[in-house]
Amino acid sequence: MRIKIGIPRALLYYWYGPLWRVFLAELGLTPVVSGPTGKELLNTGVKATVDEACLPVKVFIGHCLSLRAQCDFLMVPRLVSVNKKDYICPKFMGLPEMTRQAVGDRPLFIWKSEKNCALGSPQALPAVLRQGFSARRIKKGLQKAEAAFRTYHRLLQEGLFPEEAETVLFTGAFPHRAEKGRRIGLIGHPYCLYDPLINLGTIDLLQRYGFQVLAPEYFTPRQIEAELRLLTKPLFWTLSQRIVGAFRLLCKQRVEGIIYLSAFACGPEALIGELVKKEAKVAGLPLLQLALDEHSGEAGLVTRIEAFIDLLQRKRRLSCV
C-alpha cells in the first residue's frame, strides 16, 4: 500500500505546492492535497485555534483537520526564512507546534526552510524521508521538483493564477484567456489573494467586470528586489517585501487602481499597510484596503469593490474629458 501524505492547500501552498507534490510523487508516495477551502472547513479551523490567530492560520488548521482521516502523515512546513536576511512570519515558524496542538498525535512531516538550510536542500526534508530513501533518489526527486517549481512560477509570472497554473503543470491544458485592456492591481499575501474563501471571490468579480488582474506573483523576484533598494531600512519579511515591491511596480505600470487584501490581525501588514497607503497618496493612485477575517461577508465586500470600480470609472471619464 502506498503511503499517503496530506498537504494542506493553505498558506504558502500557493507558492510551493507543486514542489511538494512533485517531490513526494517522485519518491513513490501519494500526495493528498486538501480540497478548496469551504465554510465548514473554516469553522472547524476557527474552533481549533486560539482566537487571536489570523484567518490564514485558522484556515490552515482547518485544512489539516479535514485531511486527518485521509492520510497517514500530515506535511507541515516550518518556513523560517526562504531568503537570506529575512523571515516569513513568526506564525510560520511555530506552525508545526500550533498544528500539533490542534490535530493531536497525528505524525507530522516537518519540511523546514531556515537561513542555513534552503527549502530545496536535502537537509530541509523531514528526517524520516532522509532515512527511508537513498540520497541519490532524493537528489533526483528534488531536481525534478525544483524544475516543476520553476515552471510553475514562470506560469504565474505570465499572469496565470495558481489554480490555473497547477492545472497546466499537471495536465498540460492551457486555459483560454482573452486579453483585456483595463488593468487593476491586487496585492496582498498569496494565501489571502488566491484562497477562494478568504478572498470571497474578489478575483472572479474583477474579471467579470472586465479587468485584467495583476498580482504580486506576476513580477519576478529580481524586479521586486530592484524596487526595494529605496527603502530606508530593508524589510525583514519576505512576503511584505513582495507587497511593497509589487505595489511600486504596479504604480509604474499605470494600473487603474490597486486593491489591497489584508488579513485582520496580520502583524507585518499593520505596518506595511501604512507604508503603502502613504505611497499611494503621494502617487495619486486609488487604493482600496480591505481587512478580511472569518466574519467577512461576501455582500459587504462586493459592495465595496463595486463602489471602488465606480470610482475608477468616474476618474477615467473625468480624465478623458
Binding site: E52, A53, P90, K91, G94, M98, Q101, A102, C266
Partner: peptide
C-alpha cells in the same frame, strides 16, 4: 498585546504546557 505574533504562537502551545504540569494559566490580551 493584541496581534502580537510571537506570543500568539506561544499562546497556542499554552494548553500543552498547562496539561503537562497541571498548571493554571491565564492569558490576558
Amino acid at each position: 498585546p493584541f496581534t502580537c505574533m510571537p506570543e500568539i504562537v506561544a499562546q497556542s502551545i499554552t494548553p500543552a504546557v498547562s496539561a503537562a504540569y497541571q498548571l493554571p494559566i491565564l492569558t490576558l490580551v
